[in-house]
Design a binder for these strands. Structure first.
Length: 584
DNA sequence: GGAGGTTGTCATTCC
DNA sequence: CAGGAATGACAACCT
């Protein structure tokens, strides 16, 4: 389309230019919209949320696992029914990993063996002792899918069969915590693979690197934000998950792991989500790849190539000085819009002062000051070998100044795309940048503004010392540097602020979802517990109905209760005696 | 023409 | 102490 309108003088060269321009426009467009377009931000946020959701679910799986394990152990400590063997914590954890049937087998009355157990306690014991009665009691073996379901055998001990779950979940540091979480996740994956829930093993997600931690330059701001998760935000979540994990270890919770359906609900969808989102890191990689594919911008502007000798500053320079008396002596005071207005020029005559809009006009007019100045005030700096090496040494790249002439060239030659908002803003930005450039030129400062801003301070000072600038020039150069630094800082600050806001919004959403999830889980557990109690109650009564004394009379559940000793045998204990023992 | 967003700049604080 | 990052506030500009 566009080529038709072009004079086909040098088709090949034009094609190349066109490709280059379009390519740059694409790059600019992509980067600009990523940073500034709210819809793109939201997409990025959604992407990030998806990833965080996976992370959360993965942590949730680990949490559930640890909860399920420690719930049993905690149950011991709270009720005193199950006396943990005098083993180290690891052994206790190992025991906790065994099936509930084994736990039942380990049941031993404490020193209060003679004490009465509550009805619920008895029923719980019964439920675990006679798992055939109701499915809920048989469910615990499904707690850990890696363990073959324990049937009616009450004398099976498999302490060493579950090595992966014997790891101490309390980990020393955040890195180790993250790594162990990943290991847990992998283990769960393997478990599910073995149990046939998942077909393919999913490699563990590589811990997300904090892309946002490295945002020192505007170019990074505009290009490196495919992953928009703010670092503070990510760190907060990392820490938060670690905390939750450790806190969950102290939370006894039996019910949620007892129901096989729930088990499947908890694990399978998450892993599925994991599989579905496995391509996310690749996207990041692509983004990075794009960044990497960006051409290494030359250190110097094309304009710089026309460097002239210092001696070429001649009468034209003075004429130009007269034309642009906005040379505000380099005082930062003059940088204020008021002082830059014609009427308030420090020079007082107001004849040559120009406002920002004036400068915009001058900048936007074709063949205007930009090129004129380039000819009139070539950068002396470039004729200076040492400084060049300095800039190379410091790795300074003048991206904006490198791109700017290209864009102008494209616009001038009719290649320009439709006027995007971003373009206008970019133009405005360039115009603002040019304000300092104009001042620098007006004061005959022989350095590029970008160089002044981006140069390391040592090199900058060296350069200042080498070129004997007057006070006004020195002040202006320092102001330009300060403003340039501050401009980038302000951009970063705003970006950070936006990321913080988005992160907080996401955190709020996550907390709401977590609350809903916990509420549902609570009601589900309550329902399950209620059903279990009913089943155990009926079982208890059924057992009592089968017990008779010497005369063949049935025992009354009101007068007797069932208790189980450490060797698994069940005794009928009179309730009166229990009450008395308790009172003691 | 006014509201809201964007950007640059200044002042200030902190590291 | 200088340099610079961070940030609130303000103004100019744009949509």
């Amino acid at each position: 389309m566009m080529e038709i309108e072009l004079p086909k003088v040098h088709p090949s060269q034009q094609d190349i230019d066109l490709i280059d321009i379009l390519w740059r426009q694409d790059i600019d467009l992509g980067a600009g919209r990523e940073v500034f377009d709210i819809s793109y931000r939201q997409k990025e946020v959604q992407l990030q949320r998806q990833k965080e959701l996976e992370e959360e679910k993965r942590q949730q799986i680990v949490r559930e696992q640890e909860k399920a394990l420690l719930a049993q152990l905690q149950l011991d400590e709270e009720t005193g029914e199950f006396v943990p063997r005098s083993t180290p914590t690891n052994n206790a954890l190992t025991q906790a990993n065994t099936a509930p049937a084994e736990i039942t087998q380990n049941v031993a009355f404490t020193e209060e063996d003679g004490d009465a157990m509550s009805f619920d306690e008895c029923m719980q014991l019964l439920a675990e002792t006679f798992p055939l009665v109701e499915p809920a009691a048989a469910a615990p073996p499904c707690l850990d899918p890696s363990i073959p379901p324990c049937t009616d055998s009450t004398h099976l001990m498999m302490p060493g069969e579950i090595p992966m779950l014997t790891q101490n979940p309390l980990l020393p540091g955040p890195m180790d915590q993250t790594w162990m979480d990943l290991q847990h996740c992998m283990n769960i994956q393997e478990i599910l693979d073995m149990s046939g829930y998942v077909n393919t093993a999913q490699p563990p997600n590589i811990p997300e690197s904090n892309y946002s931690q490295y945002l020192p330059k505007l170019s990074d701001v505009t290009t490196g934000t495919a992953d928009m998760c703010p670092p503070e935000y990510m760190n907060t979540y990392d820490g938060g998950y670690s905390n939750v994990n450790q806190m969950s270890l102290k939370t006894p919770d039996i019910n949620e792991s007892f129901v096989p359906d729930e088990f499947c609900d908890m694990f399978y969808p998450d892993l599925e989500a994991k599989v579905n989102s496995a391509s996310l890191p690749c996207e990041d990689g692509n983004t990075d790849g794009q960044i990497d594919e960006l051409p290494n911008t030359p250190l110097l502007k094309p304009m710089d190539l026309h460097s002239l000798s210092p001696g070429q500053f001649s009468t034209e320079k003075t004429k130009d000085m007269a034309e642009f008396p906005d040379s505000d002596s380099g005082l930062s005071l003059d940088a204020s819009p008021k002082s830059s207005s014609p009427g308030k020029s420090l020079h007082g005559d107001g004849s040559g002062g120009f406002s920002d809009s004036d400068m915009d006009e001058m900048e936007s007019s074709p063949g205007s000051m930009e090129s004129d100045y380039a000819e009139m005030f070539p950068l002396l700096f470039l004729s200076d070998g040492p400084q060049h090496s300095l800039s190379e040494k410091s790795g300074i790249t003048l991206d904006e100044t490198d791109k700017q002439p290209k864009t102008e060239q494209a616009e001038a030659s009719g290649y320009s795309k439709p006027p995007f908002t971003k373009d206008k803003q970019k133009k405005r930005s360039e115009a603002r940048l040019s304000r300092d450039e104009e001042r620098a030129r007006a004061l005959q400062i022989p350095f590029d503004v970008e160089l002044i801003i981006n140069m390391p301070v040592d090199d900058f000072n060296e350069m200042m010392a080498k070129h004997q600038l007057n006070e006004a020039q020195l002040a202006l150069v320092r102001d330009i540097r300060r403003r340039g630094k501050n401009k980038v800082a302000a951009q970063n600050c705003r970006k950070r602020k936006m990321e913080n806001i988005m992160g907080l919004e996401y955190e709020l959403d996550s907390l709401k979802e977590e609350k809903d999830r916990l509420m549902k889980e609570k009601s589900k557990n309550s329902r399950s517990l209620r059903e279990m109690k009913q089943q155990l109650s009926s079982l208890y009564l059924e057992v009592f109905s089968m017990l008779t004394d010497e005369q063949g009379k049935p025992y009354s559940p009101n007068d007797y209760s069932l208790q189980q000793t450490s060797d698994g045998s069940v005794f009928l204990v009179p309730r009166v005696k229990k009450t008395l023992a308790k009172s003691n």
